[in-house]
Design a protein around this nucleic acid. Structure first.
Lengths: 346, 346
DNA sequence: ATGGTTGACGAAACCGGTTTCGGCGAGTTT
DNA sequence: AAACTCGCCGAAACCGGTTTCGTCAACCAT
């Protein structure tokens, strides 16, 4: 390992003291512009890179973001993880920060992990993916005075920075699309309502149905697993089975399609099914799943940028953004088979 | 942010000097056993946690591993990433280390990233996923004297630590399985041969064919994309089209199944197809893809442990392990449709 | 000419640890 | 009894930065 170029080297080269050089690089105002310029040039020339961990011992900041993935949540966030990480790390390295990743098997272990990373200053702030409506992580970090940013706003996020994707709007749009095809009995298979995204998508569905003048038909909140199939079967056994189903998740949609197939129903012909996520599994289906794609790279990047700004002291109220999920048309939806008119509001 | 418990606090509580306490905790031999014991107890009681970054400034180690993901490689490693990370971070946190993740869009950017992380001491060593036969990362890190561990041994990994999954053996097993079904014309759709895994799987296939007394039929190395379909079409247009195909990758297999379907061939009945990875996309197919599943959690965990040992100075020759991919039977393979005997070695 | 600002920098303390060096008392040798 | 280990610990330097404080010359007004 070759020796690094250290601040002392740089100062020696310049004929200045360590302190002066440090202040020059950090934009202190008591250094003459000419000196600042000269320091910058020589620093560049000899390739000086400050050692982040040496800085942090004094400043208390390590120039790194933390991301704790909770693995007990089934297969959640698995398909998007690579793109999500890509977005985060891209934004993070652009500012010469880094990303520290940890995983936890349970919620409690997750909270411990946050405490550990904070205590060891492995992270100056955290990105909280997949927020819950009442998220214990928020209270933990808020009490500790540690900056964070939410992926998905919650009910008590008044003083928080967040980035959110308007999944509710997407669901609303899905209903409108199906209603436009002529469907009247449009059902919804939801996900676990402890997560904010699930509730918001449900609300979006309800809004869409209200807008179309239809009465909603919702299955009780399931987990994220493929047992969206059981949801569909329950719906089909009702007295007025739906001709179209909006699913809060691609996984749910895939499960539903499977179950429909087992009943002899082909998605896109006998029954319309729309998912949400734009996942690869959905695209792998034949025909591909009609779904709403989320730009996970952009989401990760913005979250990182917002968090860095937050750590820098920016007002959280200015650090809020939303983005839209965009419809990706597949082949699992279309006009109803028998364009009947018996359904609808009764 | 509550103030941390620092070494000075601990020393004050004990009535000892900072240096003595530090040596006691780090197992120096010039501290009496009684004192060591006492230090340990009090340290535990008041909850002292050394600040890794403060240690590293003197020791040069930051107790963190690095993982650089190269994103230009299409969709590679995407499905397994979550489990892989889970394995790594689990092993890493068990020893109070952490994981720093970065991504790169190109190979050159990747190499720069290694240099940057090394220079800033953000990582004491690296896990190199998806090794290439002649991997520039190896020479880079070797020259820099930076520890690393390979996921997949390479041709010039004499002095390296590695963990490897015997993909070749799996392919061999796949051929044996198909030959056992009665297939004679078994083809192989390979991946890009710059990657070690691709070559090893090809060799495994050849070995299996030789063992079964059959002559191999191989399509030129493709990229990892879904254009495994084009590979299958090329095979089908040959004068002796195969009745079974072994694919180096689930993605290739999925592409092949699609292409077969377009030709009116159903996988599992008209043609047998076996993949490798045990990916979720493969399981989502109907019928599910017969494939070889890899325990990515265990792989990640062992890689992390090997690397930490390597950083600790262990001899790389002792840090080598292999694991097997296990067959996961799906429905895409079976006996040939017409049990003909015209094929085989000619 | 004198006193008071001000701009620009050096010296040194500091952050939280690690590591080297030296000292002191008890036990052992001569 | 003097000298010589040896075990055990404190003092202080050190790692690579940041930040506070003080100094000194140049500039300004009186």
């Amino acid at each position: 390992m070759e020796r690094r170029v250290t601040l002392r080297d740089l100062a020696g080269e310049l004929g200045l003291s360590k302190g002066t050089v440090s202040r020059a690089l950090n934009g202190y105002r008591d250094i003459s512009p000419a000196t600042i310029q000269r320091v910058r040039e020589v620093s560049e020339r000899i390739g000086y890179r400050p050692l982040a961990l040496a800085q942090s011992i004094r400043t208390g900041q390590s120039r790194s973001l933390g991301l704790v993935l909770q693995m007990e949540q089934h297969d959640a966030q698995r398909p998007f993880l690579a793109e999500f990480l890509r977005g985060i790390t891209r934004a993070v390295s652009a500012q010469n920060w880094t990303l520290t990743v940890a995983t936890a098997e349970s919620e409690d272990e997750g909270l411990d992990t946050y405490l550990r990373l904070m205590a060891e200053r492995k992270a100056d702030g955290f990105i909280l993916p997949r927020t819950q409506r009442h998220d214990p992580r928020i209270t933990l970090l808020r009490d500790a005075g540690c900056p964070f940013v939410l992926f998905g706003r919650t009910e008590d996020s008044d003083d928080c920075a967040w980035f959110d994707i308007r999944g509710g709007q997407a669901m609303q749009q899905a209903v409108a699309r199906l209603a436009g095809f002529g469907h009247r009995r449009i059902a919804f298979i939801g996900a676990d309502p402890v997560y904010t995204y699930a509730t918001k998508r449900l609300h979006g569905y309800r809004a869409g149905m209200a807008e179309a003048g239809l009465s909603p038909l919702v299955t009780a909140g399931h987990a994220t697993a493929k047992d969206g199939g059981t949801g569909l079967l329950a719906l089909l056994e009702g007295e007025a089975p739906p001709t179209a189903v909006v699913c809060a998740t691609d996984l749910l949609a895939i499960g539903a399609i499977r179950a429909a197939q087992a009943r002899g129903l082909t998605a896109g012909r006998d029954i319309s099914i729309i998912g949400y996520d734009g996942s690869r599994e959905g695209q792998t289906l034949d025909p591909p799943l009609t779904s709403f794609a989320v730009d996970q790279v952009a989401a990760g990047a913005r979250l990182a940028e917002l968090l860095i700004a937050r750590i820098g002291g920016a007002d959280p109220l200015t650090l809020r953004e939303t983005a839209d999920a965009v419809l990706r048309e597949g082949g699992t939806d279309g006009p109803p088979l028998n364009h009947d008119t018996t359904g609808g509001t009764r």
